Amino acid sequence: MNPVRRGQWQTAAEIVRLMSRRPAITRTAVARELRLSTSSATEVTSKLRELKLLSETPAPIQGRGRPTTVLHAHPEGPLALALDLRQSEWRSVVVGLDGSFMSHDDRRHRTRRPEVVLGDLRDAVQQTQEQYGHRLRAVSLAVPGTLRDNRLLQASVSEWAELDLDNITADTGLALLTGNDATLGGVAEARSGAAVGAGTALHLIIEAGIGGTLIVGGAPVQGASGAAGEFGHTPFGDRTRLCPCGAHGCWNLEVDGRALAHHLQEPEPDDPHLYAMEILRRTDLAATKAVARVVAAIAAGVAGLVNAHDPDVVTLGGLAVPLRAAAVRVFDDTYMAGIMTFRRNTAPPVLAAVHRADGSLRGAAALALDHLTTEVAIATWAAEDKSVATVG
C-alpha cells in the first residue's frame, strides 16, 4: 500500500507531533506555533478527530479572548508499547499519542538467560496486541548495551551479546524500534526533564558501568553506525585493567558497584546497582574512602567530556545521583579541577536528571511517538478509514 504522497499529510502530522511532545497543548497554541489560521487549525483538528487521532476538551478560560480546546489522544487512536530492559527486571507501558501512559507493568526476570528474557518480552508484545488489536502500531525497546540494526552487540550482562532483537515482534507485523537505555534517558531529559531548552546537553547514567548521549538540537548524536555514546569505554581508567568489552582502562571499571568492590577488595557483585546502594548506607571509613574514589573518577570523566563536547548542561541519572550526593565536595572539587581554565567561570551545571526512575522508559516512549507521528504513519492509519477525506 502506498498511502501518502509527499507533503499530503504534513500539517496533520505536525499537529499530532506537537500534541505528543507538548501534553495538554491547546488548539490556539498549535495554530500559533505552526502559523495556521484559526479556520485552518479548526478544520484540520476536526478531520483528525474523525480519524480518531485526537480528541478535544474545552480549555480553562484564561482572561479575554475566544475559547479554545485542549488536544488529547483519541480513546480509540493509535498506541505504542514501550519496553525497558534492565539487569534484574523489565518494564512496559502502553503509550497514547499524547504521551499518556495507559498501563504500566514491572516484572523481575525469572532468569537472565537471553532466550527466556526475550521470550518474556515477546509474550508481552503478543498479549498487548491481543488486547488492543490494530490500535497497537509499534514497539519501542530500551536496552542496556550497544546496538546496531536491532542487534544487541554487547551488554552489561555478559550473557546478552549478539542477540537478534527482531524476534520480539516476530509474526506480529509491528515495527520494532530499539535504543540504548542511556541514550533514551537523555532524550527524556531533553524533551521534558532537566535539559529542556538546552542546545547541547550531555546526559550520563550509571548502572552497571556508565553510558550516555550527547543531545544536539533535541536529538541524540548517533554516530556513523548508531553506536555513539559509549562513554564508559573511554580510557579514563587504569590502563592495566581489561574491560569485558576487550579494551584496557575503560571508565566503566571505575564508576559503579564493581569499582566499589574492587576498592574494598570484595568479590565482584552480581548486581552492581544493589551492591552500590548497600555500600552507600555504610558509615565505616573503608566504605567512605571507596565511595570518594569512585566519585572522583566520575567527576574527572565528566570534566573531560565537558572539555570535549562543550555542552550547555550535564544531567546525571541512575547511581550517579546518590554517589555524587554522598561526596559532593569531592565531586565539585574534582570536576572544577578537570575543567579547562577558560571554561571555569562558565562551566556547565551538573544537574540530577528529572526522570531518574523512568528516563529510559520515557525515552523509549518518545522514540515510538516520533515514529507514530510521521506523515507516513498518519496516512497509513487514515487509509484504514476510506470515508475520511485527506487533510493537508
Rank of each mutant, 00 (worst) to 15 (best):
A382R: 14
P244R: 11
V313C: 11
A155D: 06
L147K: 07
S88N: 14
A24N: 05
G237A: 13
P235L: 04
H74F: 15
T146Y: 07
L163M: 07
V139D: 00
I279A: 05
R110Q: 06
A352I: 01
H371Y: 05
T183L: 10
P75A: 13
T183Q: 08
T146H: 10
L214Q: 03
L51M: 08
I279N: 06
T38P: 07
T341D: 10
A290V: 03
G359M: 01
A320G: 09
E266C: 03
A276R: 04
A31S: 07
V354F: 07
Q222L: 12
Q62E: 15
E159R: 00
R135S: 00
T288H: 12
L372Y: 15
L184Y: 10
I205V: 14
L174M: 10
A364W: 04
V70F: 01
A190R: 08
P23D: 14
Q8S: 15
Q126V: 08
P244S: 08
R107S: 07
V354H: 12
L369C: 02
L372W: 15
R5K: 06
G392M: 04
V388I: 15
V328D: 05
D123V: 10
R329L: 11
V330P: 02
P58H: 03
G77C: 04
T178A: 08
D271F: 02
V306Y: 00
G257A: 07
V376N: 02
